[in-house]
Design a protein around this nucleic acid. Structure first.
Lengths: 240, 240
DNA sequence: TACGAGAAATCGGTATACCGACTGTTGACG
DNA sequence: CGTCAACAGTCGGTATACCGATTTCTCGTA
């Protein structure tokens, strides 16, 4: 590989996910190019990709900003998880191969130390890998791409410390329970346990959200999504 | 709006969806630029977007091709529909506003003439609009974006005449039944009817697939997805 | 004739100059 | 003093020249 664009894209994505690039912060192509030592063309390309993935926002003729974090987005993404994960777990139960099952067990047993930030971040990666692997095991590439994207976008919230705090052993137990069902090829049980896992994760983050909204006023945006959703325009869906 | 990129993207997407651009056909940036009277930059941008949406394939340093249609993709997309549509229908039952409900009824009653290709294409658009509207009524923007993309990708198969043939009244009945449940704010009933609708659509297309695979040898690719999926590499999911 | 090395052509990746859209500022006029 | 219009600065959109990766063709050699 000799392209500038691809590694640039990965680096910027990593920095956005880990919140090294502040959510909501606006920037210009030249600025980002200076930061990562690249010229405008690959920067543009990376930004376009990131926009499709919901990590960057583009205002035509104006500029860019790191996609802000909003309560609405957090809610949307978790709602999607609640729909997707039980489905992928059930499919994985029927389709995963032995290698995948082994890998799942390995990833599911990872536990982290609440006190240690590095350990927490390590866990976030492991958690991402586990859920993505389950999605991949569904053998539905298009589906697993979507699930992976949902996780990537959620990770930004987790990197802010929004969730998971002090839930280490609980989470591991839920993961193992889910993976067990998949290993037993029990699709319905896998579906139930995945639903349970995501539901509980949503409950856990709900309480944390309360505190986060206040501290995060600089980071969280004032939910323009909601305004757009409730505006009373006529619903004409465009054709292709 | 004064950009070249955006309308170009829409035009190309339309042509791909309607199979005016042959699935699998390879092309170069310059070629597409000549076809649509645009220079390389906007062409590149449009192609990148389309790649992300699964309508164009990019081979690095080599060139582009219109994403081929494969049985694997068709299967994946329908499987996703079976997961997403019942969920969006249930959410829409709880969240749709009056305008959306009115619009749904209008779209659901559209019937087409089996003999007339124009009428069939008109129906494909209406069908797309209905399903997209239901997704939008879920008030989950990220979810509805995904659902919309699944439909766009499926429409290519339908434009080939792969499905829907001579099922007009049946389809309309299923649509109305689904919309009725949503209008009654009955989430569980909406979920059931959406599941029913998609299941039947999958069954209907299954029989049609048989014939299509043969006639479509030039159009359908030999399922490299399956080969990739079953290859016995070690499953290491990359980190972010 | 078969094969392989090297040259040439093709085409995407990148850098960059230029253009036009949008913003913010400033100054003149009411 | 307030308002609005003209202007200048900033920055993304586009066109294009150049570069390098990949492939293909060709020609010489075994």
């Amino acid at each position: 590989m000799a392209t500038i664009s691809e590694p640039l894209y990965r680096r910027v994505r990593k920095d956005i996910v880990e919140c090294a690039l502040t959510p909501g912060k606006s920037f210009s192509e030249a600025e980002l190019g200076r930061l990562y030592n690249a010229s405008r063309t690959p920067v543009r390309e990376a930004c376009r990709r990131l926009e499709h993935e919901g990590l960057v926002r583009i205002i035509p003729f104006r500029g860019y900003s790191i996609a802000p974090l909003s309560v609405a987005e957090f809610h949307d993404l978790q709602e999607m998880q609640l729909i997707f994960e039980p489905a992928t777990a059930a499919l994985a139960a029927g389709r995963a191969n032995q290698q995948e099952l082994d890998e799942m067990r390995e990833l599911a047993t990872y536990e982290y130390n609440v006190e240690d930030t590095n350990s927490y971040h390590e866990f976030l990666q492991t958690n991402y890998q586990l859920h993505t692997l389950i999605a991949q095991a569904s053998k539905n590439k298009r589906l697993s791409d979507v699930v992976s994207n949902v996780h990537v976008r959620l990770m930004r919230f987790f990197y802010l410390g929004l969730s998971f705090e002090s839930h280490g052993p609980t989470l591991v137990a839920e993961h193992i329970s889910m993976v067990d069902a998949i290993c037993n090829r029990d699709a319905e049980e896998a579906r139930i346990r995945a639903t349970d896992h995501i539901s509980k994760a949503i409950e856990r983050s709900a309480t944390l959200l309360m505190g986060a909204i206040r501290f995060g006023e600089a980071v969280f945006e004032a939910s323009p999504d909601l305004a757009a959703a409730t505006s009373s325009r006529r619903y004409i869906v465009p054709r292709i």
